[in-house]
């Protein structure tokens, strides 16, 4: 079955069709072909979400994967991240989960967790 992609490399947004034989059409430049090949073989995404903390004034802290992870692992990664509760002060970039789901990606904080009175 032919599959359609919207190329997101530039604002043009070409509709690229991949047919049953795997030939690619509809892209107006080479970058579209590379994008679609990647989406067909190994689509990856940066995941951003939040983790719980024990601090009432900062109930949630935002986190991200420090590199893209396979698209198919997004929901599994969410399950792992939702188990975490931060109980100490931490900085942006600090690792919350190392090598999530055996990928090379770590879950890192994107917000600093500093209690009010200790903020400068």
């Amino acid at each position: 079955m032919a599959k359609e992609f919207i190329c997101i490399v530039c604002p043009r947004g070409c509709r690229v069709i991949v047919d049953d034989q795997g030939s690619i059409s509809g892209n107006q430049c080479k970058r579209g072909e590379i994008y679609v090949k990647n989406e067909m073989t190994n689509p990856t995404r940066i995941l951003t979400t939040t983790v719980k903390t024990i601090f009432p004034e900062i109930p949630r802290a935002s986190v991200k994967t420090d590199q893209p992870i396979p698209k198919g692992l997004l929901m599994k990664a969410m399950e792992e991240i939702n188990k975490i509760v931060i109980d100490k002060e931490m900085n942006i970039g600090d690792i919350v989960i190392e090598h999530i789901l055996n990928t090379n990606a770590n879950i890192v904080l994107t917000k600093e967790i500093k209690r009010k009175e200790e903020r400068k």
């Binding site: 940066i46 935002s62 991200k64 942006i92 994107t110 917000k111 600093e112």
Partner: peptide, 10 residues
């Protein structure tokens, strides 16, 4: 570089 909103604000 590509940041999240809180990182950009920081």
């Amino acid at each position: 570089e590509e940041y999240t909103g809180p990182e950009y604000a920081h």
